[in-house]
Design a protein around this nucleic acid. Structure first.
Lengths: 205, 205, 205, 205
DNA sequence: GATGAATGAGACTTCATTCAT
DNA sequence: TATGAATGAAGTCTCATTCAT
């Protein structure tokens, strides 16, 4: 832990700067100042600016992935899973606003950079894994017949909009106040017609 | 028209560059090269870089606004309006991918710039006008009781996700293939419980 | 002339700096200071450091080429030509010590740079043109039978050594004091056995 | 020997890097990577970059000196000596291309560095020792009356040009193919008029 | 209106060197 | 002896902007 301290403090400082000024506007010198490290140390550990961003992005995806995986492995009915994803997403954003801002606001900029392809492929892994789960649910008849790419969009899209507004300070109150309504709406938008809220969902007779 | 030609060609070139490289990565010199104008001419017409972005943003909002206004003024039932917003949004993105990329991908970056506040307030005008309409519908009982900010998020959020994926080339086929499913889902997610698709929606007895 | 002034003054300053500190040790800032131009102006005209060096190298080759071409076109007998090349070379070095230092001292460094291949090919052109002339003389029987690449080495090599020593300040007196002995020696080293100094050389009966 | 191994492996790696990238362009880190040593180890053994270059240069001169001394001590007639110097030089270059490249290509750069004066004086020693021998020969009447500095230039200059071309890959075939013609030419360029190849040279009656 | 040379602040990065372990 | 994290001066280059013609 003491060993990793410098590298970690640089990443921490970088995240802080990205939140404060945005990814593009953050200079190496800002990170240097915020981290207390020297320029040389920054480059010793990361090689260049882009790799600092990349390392942070990777760590963000890893952390976020843990939450979503939890939602899938813990819950058993389809409805529970759909709700868990929405709640899990909003919960994570509420607790990790800086990571969320960085991850979701800057995705485009990060993927446009030199390490974009590498990071994109890691992202694609997450997406495809999730996609497999949704499709399985659809096969079981718990979800309406909807083009596959729409399912995650319907479940996560509105929550993302709300989260974005909240992160930008355009929303009063706690982010989690919107969790239940959004989870309910997500479920309504994707559930099969013969299923209503409160039914068992998956594993029906 | 011939007089305005130079100014327009600069804006056109700027939009092209923003699509190609992103807003932040686009330099004055790229726009100069793409437009065929001289640096001096660029500054003569726009004063500085930020004002090129601003002018483009304004024009984008204006164009997009026309479509959405159409959806509201033409249609009469709530369901029709909800569906029209989704369809209108996706239709506009499909026909104006460059404008869409610029407007939705780069919103954060644009608002972070020096003219951000000005542009934000123009945006806020649009949003608040729309909000008023949704709230009216809610008052009439056509929409479920949902926190107000969720309504546009539910209607537009999933469409935005799909549009983003399509613009990034992650989606096969035509964007409009997803329009009907998304419209249907949007309506399901916000409609009042005693209303089903096909009912009259607003102005019921 | 007034128009080209800036670009030329930069090149002039660069040559001065190269003489003073060597090519590698010369920084953009030194050239900026010596030329009186701004950094921006430097980059406006040349794009990068390497292209300043390249432009200078090209100009140097051009100037030097004029002298050597003169030696070949003016003189008629082989002996006269051999002597003219040695004398012309030393004369040019004596009159253009800065160009000479840059051209001959830094050839390796220049060719190792990014524009190396381009410059190398220009150099190769000069060399091959000259080679053709020597070979013609050899065919005529004025020169001994020597491997072709040795001929220019024998004629120019010693003069280059002397010039290098003189440029480095290791030689007392005027460079041209060594011209006649070196010309004589060059001719002795390459002339055919039945030809002695003062004979007609080429076009003998 | 095992003790010295590390130091030697660093020097060996340095020579490799100098050949590959040139002296100026070689960084401490390149040598570290090529040698397998750590940065700390490099500095422990040599103190700084310049001293690595210096140590290598010294070793190169020492090795090359052995060959040339051989030419002078073994052979007795002037002609034999002149020829031996040319042959010895080319033979050494052919067998030690990396050392040759370093020693002759980078001489200027090395002498321009902080340890330049020290190395220059060592070089000057070699040169003056050799000069004494040539002058003695001249006094004996074996060599033509030529300005003293021209003698080594005439003997070694052409061979250096050929060696440079060969090291740069501009020459096909073996370097030693050019040895005999160059030795013959060197002797012709400096021998006294009443001496022809095969005469006794020195020690005539 | 149009042009493009000129400007300079400031960004990123390299690299020799030091020093605690 | 060996290691490699840490340092920071110094270099190259970019780019928005100004201004004389």
């Amino acid at each position: 832990m003491a060993r990793e301290s410098r590298k970690d403090s640089i990443l921490k400082a970088a995240l802080f700067c990205f939140t404060e000024h945005g990814v593009e506007a953050t200079t190496i010198d800002m990170i240097r100042e915020a981290s207390g490290a020297s320029i040389g140390s920054l480059y010793h550990h990361f090689g260049n600016r882009e790799r600092i961003i990349g390392a942070l992005y990777l760590e963000g995806i890893r952390r976020y992935g843990l939450v979503l995986n939890g939602a899938f492995t813990t819950d058993s009915t389809t409805e529970q899973r759909v709700r868990s994803v929405v709640l899990g997403y909003l919960g994570w954003v509420a607790e990790n606003p800086d990571w969320a801002r960085f991850l979701f606001n800057s995705r485009g900029q990060v993927e446009a950079g030199p390490l974009g392809d590498e990071l994109k492929s890691i992202n694609a892994l997450h997406v495809s894994r999730m996609k497999a789960v949704w499709e399985e649910m659809q096969t079981h008849g718990d979800l309406r017949t909807i083009p596959a790419p729409c399912i995650p969009a319907l479940i996560t899209g509105p929550a993302q909009e709300i989260a974005k507004a909240w992160l930008a300070g355009r929303l009063k109150g706690a982010l989690l106040d919107y969790a239940e309504p959004l989870a309910e709406a997500a479920w309504r938008s994707v559930r099969a017609d013969d299923i209503s809220s409160g039914d068992e969902g998956r594993f029906r007779a």
